[in-house]
Amino acid sequence: MAKKPAKTKTPSKRAKIVEEQSSNLYEGMIPLARLRDKETYRHVVSVLVDNEAGVLARVIGLFAGRGYNIESLTVSEVDRDRGLSRINVATSGTHQTIDQIKAQLGRLVPVHIVRDLTDDGPSVARELALVKVAGVGEKRVEALRIGDIFRANVVDSSTQSFVFEVVGNTDKVDAFIDLMKPLGLVEVSRTGVAAIARGARGIEK
């Protein structure tokens, strides 16, 4: 529930009635400029769901069935006692599409809460990637050096290869992988984005 109506006007000034209603009086009122913006934006949306059979299929099916993008998706149980899982979806679209995605997620029965971490204030997002690089000589040394710069851990090594563990936001991981390409990149395994809002407030508040 939002605030009470603020204005009372005599009917004779009918033209003014509407104008004087502030367009942001209540929650759910979306500025038209935002809805009409045709630019696409990347958003990370976190969804707290009941950890029941098929709940991930519901979320994925929703995205597939309605043609929304999934750039990254992570899911894991986060509260065993209450049986809650958290799904983080990185998606992109116009504001209108993103709002639709949130509304569609919100009406799934096992969904507790939908939070747009991109819109609702600052947040941190991280993913982890395992990056296998094979090479010898100067390339091998260079790979190790760049790994250092990115604070990547070497979690496996042979005489001809490394497996790096790199953690960071999507851009950082992308940049690291790009740099490894000329140095003998073999394969990549990424976890996808885990994200959380900054500050003391929890997702359910």
Binding site: A2, P5, K7, L25, Y26, E27, G28
Partner: peptide, 12 residues
């Protein structure tokens, strides 16, 4: 429904 929104609608 949100009462402020209803008031706005009726004003419109």
């Amino acid at each position: 429904p949100d009462s402020a929104a209803i008031a706005h609608a009726v004003a419109m």
